[in-house]
Design a protein around this nucleic acid. Structure first.
Lengths: 409, 409
DNA sequence: GAGTTAAGTCAAGACAATTGACTTATTAAG
DNA sequence: CTTAATAAGTCAATTGTCTTGACTTAACTC
C-alpha cells in the first residue's frame, strides 16, 4: 500500500471456479440440446462420467435439473435423460420505455411467468422510481403467491432502457430520455430490492431474448438489429453479448447516413430513417399515442402510401447497414427484431431483399443471412429478465475467475 | 453412436485447466506491469500467496520468469520482483504479401530476434510453399545457432496474409491473391514444420502486434484500422482478437462507400479510396514496384498534389469510417496503423482531425480517440509471430477448457 | 530495543476431478 | 436359451491444486 500505482491483472481461479464452470456447462448443454443423459453430457463436455454424475446429482438436489424416463436405444443399459427444471430459478425484467414501464418474470428456460405494465406518474425519475419499486415488488409477490415453488428462486433484476448511457453531450434528440440517463437508477433499484441489478439498452435486451428463446438460440455469432423508437444492434460475439468499452456498443442508430440531407455535407443518423419514430413522423402520429401499435398495424395493413414510402427509405438504408454489419462482424446470421406489428416487419423484410452482396454470401450457409426475430413489444422486457438468468447460469469466462478483492497495490 | 444428432456443448474444466489459467494470468500480469513480487501477484490475481509462490517457482524452473534484486519499500520484508524472461519462448511469424514474403522471430516479450525477406519464385503457391518452408527452417536454425538459449523454445508459427478467407465469389479485385486463398497452405506448413500453425489476415496481425508491443498494450477494447494495399480492421474486444463466425471479421475495406461513383446507385468499397493501392493508382506507380515505399515517401514529403488529393479523399472516407467504428464498438481507442511512410501517416492523421462527433466524445477519456500505431512494414510479420506467443501464454477462456474428444452422440 | 508491518514459507487440509474396476441393463448372435 | 457385446452408470481410491493458519524473516518506526 506504499504506491498508488494500480496493478492490472486478470483474476486467477481455483477448483471452485472450475466447478462453477462445469455446473454452468451442464445447464447450458441441457438448454441447447433439450435433454441429455449423464453419458451424453460426459462426452459433450469432455468431463468424465463420474464428474458429470456428481454434478448432475448436485444440480438435481438444487432443483435445477430433473430426470426423465429411461430411454432404450440399442445395446447397453438404457440412459436416463435429464432436463432443466423451469421452476429452478426466475428473474425479473424491467423495461423502462418512453411511454410505458413494464415488468416481467421469466423462469430458468426463459418462459414468461407474469407481466405487468404501467404508465409512470408524471414528473421525473425521482417520482418514478418508487412506482417502479412497487411494481417490482408486486410482480415478485404475485408470482410467489400463485406459484410458491418459485419462492427463494429469484436470481436477479435486469433493466432495459434506451441508450446510449453516460454520454456527455446531451443530444437534442427528442427521443432520448435525458432525465433517466443521469439518474442513479441502478443504485436505487439495488437498494430498494436487495437484488443484483444490471442495465442493458433495448437492443442488447432484445438480443439477450433472441439468444435465450429466439432465433439466436445456440448461435455464437449474431447481430440483432433492433428497430424500435430508435435503432440499435445487440451484438452476440463468441456466444456472449458484447458491451464495448463503456457499455454502448451497438448503437448503430447514430451511424451517419449515406444520404445527404441538403446540398451540404451534413448527414443525418440512419435512425432518422430507420425507426418507429421516423415512421410516426411520416404517419403524423404522436409516438406517445397509446394506440400507436394498432394504428401502425392498420396503416401497414392498408398499404398506406406513407408506410410504403417509409419502408422503401428504411429498407434502402437498412440494406446498406446489413451489408456493413456483415462486413464488420462476419456473423452467422443477422436477426431483425423490434416492437413492431408483424405485418410491417414482413413488409420490411420483403423490401430488404435482395440483400447487397457481401462476404456473407457463401454456399454452405446453415442459417439465412437475415432472419426475422421477435416483433413482440414484450421481447425487450423478456431480454431484460433473461439477463440475470444468463449471468447466473450460462458458461462465461468471468464466472470462472475469483472475484477481485484488492486490485491495487 | 446410434444417432447422428450432434450434441452441442461447451467443454468443462478441471484443476489442470485452472492451473493453466493461473500460470497464464501470472505471465499476463508480468507482461502488463513489467515486474511484480509474489505478494503483488497474489493481490492482483486474487489467489493466495502460497498458490502464487508455487506457480512462480514452477515458472522460474521453466525459464519463463526470473527474479530481480529485492526492493525495500517501507516496513516489512523487502519484496522480490519477478520479470518475464524474454528467452523463455519464441515464435516465428510468416507474412505472405503480394510482392514479398517475410519471416520473423519474436521472443516472449514480443521483441524481434531475426528477420528475413524474399521474393517468392514465380509460379503459384505450389512452388512458393517449398521456398517458404526453407525460409522458415533457415530462420529457425539461424536463431538457435546464434542464440542457443532459444533451443526447444519455439511455440508456434503464425501466418499473416491478405484476407478475406474462404469466400465463394472470387472477386475480380486485382489486389486479391486468389491462388493463395484456395491453396491448403496451413496444412502444408504444419506438415512441413511440425508446428501449430494459425492464420490471420493482415489487419488482425497488425492488431496482434499493437496488442503485444504497441498502442493497444493493456487495452481491452480497441479497433486497429490497418491501411495497407487494402483496408482492414483488427478488432480487440474484451482483450482478445475477434475473428467472427468464419474468421473474416473486420474486413472493413469492403464496406460500400458513401460516395456514388456515377449517377447510378453503384457504390465502390471504401478500400478503393482508403488504401495504398488507391494511392498507387493516383501516383501512377505499379504496386509491385520494389521501390514503392521510398517513392511514396518522396511523393508525400514533396507535397505532391496527387498525394494531397489522395489524402483528402482517404481522410474524408476514413473520418466517416472512424465515426462508424466508434459507434458500433464503443472502443477505448482507435489505432491507425499500416505499412506506410510515417510522413504519409502523419499527414493522414492531421487530415482526419477534427474527427466527427460520436459517442466516443467523452470528457474523462484516458486514451485519445485516435492514435497512430505502427507504420513499420514489418509490423504485420511481428503480429503474425506474436499470435502463437499470445495463444500459448495469454489468459483466455478457451485455454481453461478441456479439449473436446468426441462432441457427437 | 521493542513493536509493527509486510513478504514469504511450511505443513496440513479440503475439494473436485480422475482412474480403473465393477454392476446393471439391454441388444445381438449363435 | 445362452453367451457375448455394448453402453450407462457407480464405487472407492488417488491425484493435483488451491487454501488455511501458523510461522519465519527482514525491514522500518518510535
Amino acid at each position: 500500500m506504499n504506491e498508488i500505482r494500480p496493478v492490472r491483472a486478470k483474476s486467477g481461479t481455483n477448483q471452485e471456479g472450475a466447478s462453477a464452470h462445469n455446473r454452468r456447462v451442464m445447464i447450458d448443454a441441457l438448454r441447447l440440446n433439450g435433454h441429455l443423459s449423464r453419458a451424453d453430457l460426459a462426452r459433450a463436455t469432455a468431463l468424465t462420467k463420474q464428474a458429470v454424475s456428481n454434478i448432475i446429482e448436485e444440480l438435481e438436489n438444487d432443483g435445477l435439473v430433473a430426470s426423465l424416463a429411461a430411454v432404450r436405444k440399442g445395446r447397453g443399459q438404457p440412459s436416463t435423460p435429464y432436463r432443466l427444471v423451469p421452476e429452478g430459478a426466475f428473474a425479473i425484467g424491467l423495461q423502462i420505455d418512453r411511454h410505458v414501464t413494464r415488468t416481467i418474470a421469466v423462469d430458468l428456460i426463459g418462459a414468461v411467468l407474469i407481466r405487468k405494465e404501467v404508465n409512470l406518474p408524471g414528473g421525473g425519475p425521482e417520482e418514478g422510481v418508487d412506482a417502479i419499486l412497487a411494481l417490482i415488488d408486486e410482480t415478485r409477490r404475485e408470482l410467489v403467491t400463485t406459484a410458491p415453488e418459485f419462492n427463494d428462486r429469484l436470481v436477479g433484476l435486469g433493466v432495459a432502457m434506451p441508450g446510449p448511457f453516460g454520454i456527455d453531450s446531451a443530444t437534442d434528440d427528442p427521443w432520448m430520455m435525458a432525465a433517466w440517463q443521469s439518474f442513479p437508477l441502478l443504485e436505487r433499484l439495488s437498494e430498494g430490492t436487495g437484488l443484483d441489478v444490471r442495465l442493458q439498452n433495448d437492443a442488447a435486451a432484445a438480443a439477450t431474448a433472441e439468444k435465450m428463446v429466439g432465433a439466436a438460440h445456440g448461435i455464437d455469432h449474431a447481430v440483432c438489429v433492433y428497430l424500435g423508437y430508435g435503432l440499435g444492434a445487440g451484438l452476440i460475439l463468441n456466444g456472449e453479448l458484447y458491451r464495448g468499452g463503456h457499455g454502448n456498443a451497438g448503437e448503430i442508430g447514430m451511424i451517419l447516413s449515406r444520404a445527404r440531407v441538403g446540398a451540404d455535407d451534413a448527414r443525418a443518423p440512419i435512425e432518422h430513417r430507420i425507426s418507429i419514430a421516423s415512421l410516426c413522423k411520416g404517419l403524423d402520429i404522436d409516438p406517445a399515442d397509446p394506440d400507436l401499435y394498432r394504428r401502425i398495424d392498420a396503416a401497414a395493413g392498408s398499404k398506406d402510401r406513407r408506410v410504403t414510402d417509409w419502408i422503401a427509405g428504411a429498407a434502402h438504408e437498412l440494406r446498406a447497414t446489413i451489408q456493413l454489419l456483415e462486413t464488420i462482424f462476419d456473423p452467422q446470421t443477422i436477426i431483425l427484431c423490434g416492437g413492431m406489428p408483424p405485418v410491417l416487419a414482413n413488409l420490411l423484410i420483403d423490401a430488404l431483399h435482395p440483400l447487397l452482396p457481401s462476404i456473407a454470401e457463401r454456399r454452405q450457409r446453415s442459417t439465412p443471412r437475415l432472419q426475422l426475430g421477435f416483433t413482440d413489444p414484450w421481447a425487450v422486457a423478456v431480454g431484460a429478465a433473461a439477463e440475470p438468468i444468463s449471468r447466473t447460469f450460462d458458461p462465461r469466462f468471468s464466472a470462472i475467475l475469483k472475484s477481485r478483492v484488492g486490485g491495487t497495490l
